[in-house]
């Protein structure tokens, strides 16, 4: 088995002093695609934000290691520079900042050196084509006026451009129609390989039909309750989260 790209040990996270993650362990070997499923309120998105380093998610215990390096206390931009990426459930609209300027700043920061304009345009066009964006998107303001589907496609387009070593896709499938889901999934699949680990966070199995996971985890009440193969997702599809106990009853 490959070395883990992400190793989370006994992670405890609170939001506004309310504990959400209660000792979560998770290991993802480089090159694998893992799915994290669970009912609403089980802490899936909290995990996504904690991995990315959102300041509102207070890590009260445990560690997050990325490629063997402890990133628990790092700023979000430092984590991104190491090769970590979060495709957000609700991409933020940033008024007046053009997609082009944003992505150039982002690519420059992640690469650690100035990207030549011609080289940037080439890579920008490639990523745009992969996610079915036309050039006019470059001049639009970041996520402003984007439809729900465009926002999600744009997240994956950024992933294609930034070429992270590890990506968390936080409910990328929510709010997508079938066509957009296919575009997004094809984008992710084309980036799959030995140099990319992926954690797909989802409530439903729908996206997993397009992006086949190697491993499926079930999260209940701030912890990983079960880990299995792709067949685990099928079971959840049929039976729901009921067998995992009373936490489900409250959130169904």
């Amino acid at each position: 088995m490959a070395e883990p790209i992400l190793k989370i040990h006994d992670l405890q996270v609170a939001v506004d002093d309310t504990p959400i993650l209660r000792g979560l362990d998770l290991e993802i070997p480089q090159g694998e695609v893992h799915a994290l499923m669970g009912p609403n309120g089980s802490g899936k998105s909290t995990l996504a934000y904690a991995i990315a380093g959102h300041p509102r998610y207070d890590i009260t215990g445990g560690t997050i290691e990325f490629e063997g390096e402890d990133v628990t206390e790092m700023e979000p931009d430092e984590r991104a520079a190491l090769g970590l990426f979060l495709a957000m459930q609700y991409p933020v609209e940033v008024p007046g900042v053009s997609v082009m300027n944003f992505l150039r700043a982002s690519l420059t920061a992640v690469r650690g050196e100035e990207v030549k304009p011609r080289e940037f345009i080439k890579e920008f066009d490639e990523a745009s084509e992969l996610l079915k964006f036309d050039r006019s998107f470059a001049d639009r303001y970041l996520n402003e006026g984007f439809s729900g589907g465009e926002k999600k496609r744009h997240e994956i387009m950024q992933m294609a451009l930034l070429k992270p070593k590890f990506a968390v896709l936080d409910e990328t499938d929510s709010g997508l129609d079938v066509d957009a889901l296919k575009v997004v999934s094809e984008g992710v699949n084309s980036l799959r390989g030995p140099g990319l680990g992926v954690l797909i966070i989802t409530h439903y199995t729908r996206i997993l039909r397009y992006i086949q996971p190697d491993v499926v985890h079930v999260m209940i009440d701030g912890k990983v309750a079960q880990t299995g193969g792709p067949e685990l997702a099928e079971q959840l599809e049929e039976r729901g989260y009921a067998e995992f106990g009373p936490a489900e009853a409250a959130t169904a």
């Binding site: 931009d77 991104a80 007046g96 900042v97 300027n101 700043a105 992640v110 970041l142």
Partner: peptide, 21 residues
């Protein structure tokens, strides 16, 4: 956070946000 999560350091992120504003 959005800009920083894409690698943009805080000072540069603020600069972009101000220009956008």
């Amino acid at each position: 956070f959005y800009l920083k999560s894409r690698g943009v350091p805080e000072a540069e992120a603020k600069r972009l946000i101000v220009l956008g504003f």
